[in-house]
Amino acid sequence: MKSLRLYAKYLRIHFLSGLQYKGWFLMTVQVLFTVITDPLGIILLFSRFGRIGAWSAEKVFLVYALALTSFGLAESFARGLDYFPWRMIRSGDFDRLLLRPRSLLVQAAGSFFHIHRLNRPFGGLVAVIWCLYALEFKATGLNVLVIVLALTGGFLTYTGVFILTSGLAFFTIRSLDWIYIFTNASYQVAKCPVDYLPRALRHMFTFFMPMLVISYYPAAAVCGWGQPYWKGLLAFPAGLAFSLFAALIWRVGVRHYQSTGS
């Protein structure tokens, strides 16, 4: 509880300091911009090539938007962890966190917050709602629950990726760029209809990093694409399990920490 309050305070301070800049209102324009540009490629592809078998643009887009929103949420609310290897470890700033008698993960997560990062989850959410509407989504309690749990599980999954990266950064300091495979590159995979996805990719993003578990299965469950509800509901436990696994690596990493920088 105390940690949560601390985290909220961090966010508030970062938010207020963000408002000090003259150009802060440009943020709203940025939101609009990202909302339009992020999916532009896939929209143009569908407008040129038409649907793929049973997959209409809305269907592909729903899966993509769920993954995108999850990533955006994690990127917005765990920005500090995203930056951690670059801004905290290499500079030696992590030493200061160790001195404070508060949760390290909370301090690291709250160390950065950028207002303009909110544009991705916002745009993603708009896209999710629009697609659900276009696909004649029935807003029953269960369906809404599946979607909410999918986004929560997705948030946990992507936060887990950041925690994992930060944990690994204790060992390698540099050379962590490959982790983008599980962040920005991972939701690109969702642009491909799941039935056509090469098996290796499909397994990697189901059983190791559960990107498809938090996007495709919930979408398929609520829209009736032949996947059972229990698979759709796996999103939350899968996300939780992945982030707990990441937290374990982080713990080992902290134990292993030797200061760098000055």
Binding site: L45, R48, F49, G50, R51, I52, G53, S175, L176, D177, W178, Y180, I181, A185, Q188, V189, K191, C192, P193, Y196, L197, P198, L201
Partner: peptide, 27 residues
């Protein structure tokens, strides 16, 4: 080189997507 792995992965995913559109789409 670590950065290159991401580029290569990204490239492969894009190729998969283009191949699907060029092979299975309506037009």
């Amino acid at each position: 080189l670590a950065g290159a792995t991401t580029s290569i992965f990204w490239g492969l995913v894009e190729i998969v997507i283009f191949t699907v559109f060029y092979t299975y789409s309506e037009r």
